[in-house]
């Protein structure tokens, strides 16, 4: 096999791990963020303050630190040792949870802004028409909120694509790890610099696709104001 084919093969494996972490984080953080945003808007003040405290801590500390704590610290305290399965699957699970918690806190603030930006008259109009709170949220508020949050969400999601590389700190074998391996020595090659640069192209293309996607969604929601 040529060097190129070998490198691309290895990078693809790394990119797949990147893509998995990206997808799992979104699947978890998009709904969890909504729950957290409701907590931060709760009329029950202890819940509101608790939520705001959690969001402050998670947004106020590095994701890298959160990953290290998530992966290494439980093992020191739990009687059975580390709760994570051995090998790559354990690292992936720990990364997923840390990423979901971290990103849901950012998303929750975006949602809150989106919900609070909708005129209160929309809610009242639903109320006087005899709609339930649930109906008002799903039939009236939700789509208006989605339209408002698309630009900040696309920003955050594009950042997530690149942030997945931070999971390398607990040795998750994602894209940059795969590229860097050829510098250190792997697959019988060492001292190869170009695979590392090549990983950048993966990120660029993937984020290009996402940018096109969000542009499409924005156009789809252009029919109302």
């Amino acid at each position: 096999m040529t060097v190129f084919a070998t490198v691309i093969g290895a990078l693809n494996v790394g990119f797949l791990q990147t893509l998995k972490l990206f997808a799992v984080t979104l699947l978890g953080a998009i709904p969890l963020g909504l729950v957290i945003s409701f907590g931060s808007m709760s009329r029950f003040s202890p819940l509101r303050y608790l939520t705001k405290l959690v969001v402050w801590v998670i947004r106020g500390t590095p994701l890298m630190l959160q990953l290290i704590i998530m992966f290494y610290i439980p093992g020191y305290f739990l009687p059975g040792g580390s709760p994570w399965p051995g090998g790559e699957s354990g690292r992936f699970l720990a990364s997923s949870i840390a990423f979901i918690i971290n990103y849901s806190c950012y998303f929750s603030e975006i949602y809150r802004g989106g919900i609070q930006g909708i005129p209160v008259g929309q809610q009242e109009a639903g109320q006087v028409l005899g709609m339930t709170k649930r109906q008002i949220f799903f039939k009236v508020t939700l789509l208006q909120m989605i339209k408002r949050i698309i630009p900040p969400m696309s920003n955050e999601i594009i950042t997530l694509v690149k942030d997945t590389s931070i999971a390398r700190i607990i040795a998750l074998q994602e894209l940059i790890w795969a590229g860097y391996a050829f510098l250190k020595g792997s697959h019988g090659y060492s001292g190869l610099i170009w695979p590392l640069f090549f990983t950048g192209i993966y990120y660029l293309i993937f984020n290009g696709v996402l940018t096109l996607f969000f542009g499409w969604v924005e156009r789809k929601l252009d029919y109302f104001r």
């Binding site: 929309q122 339930t132 009236v140």
Partner: peptide, 19 residues
């Protein structure tokens, strides 16, 4: 919620659902 249905309200700012 049910009692509200005895009344209808037209707002100063319309408050139509934009979508």
């Amino acid at each position: 919620r049910k009692k509200r249905l005895h009344f209808g309200l037209v707002f100063q700012n319309f408050n139509l659902f934009p979508q």
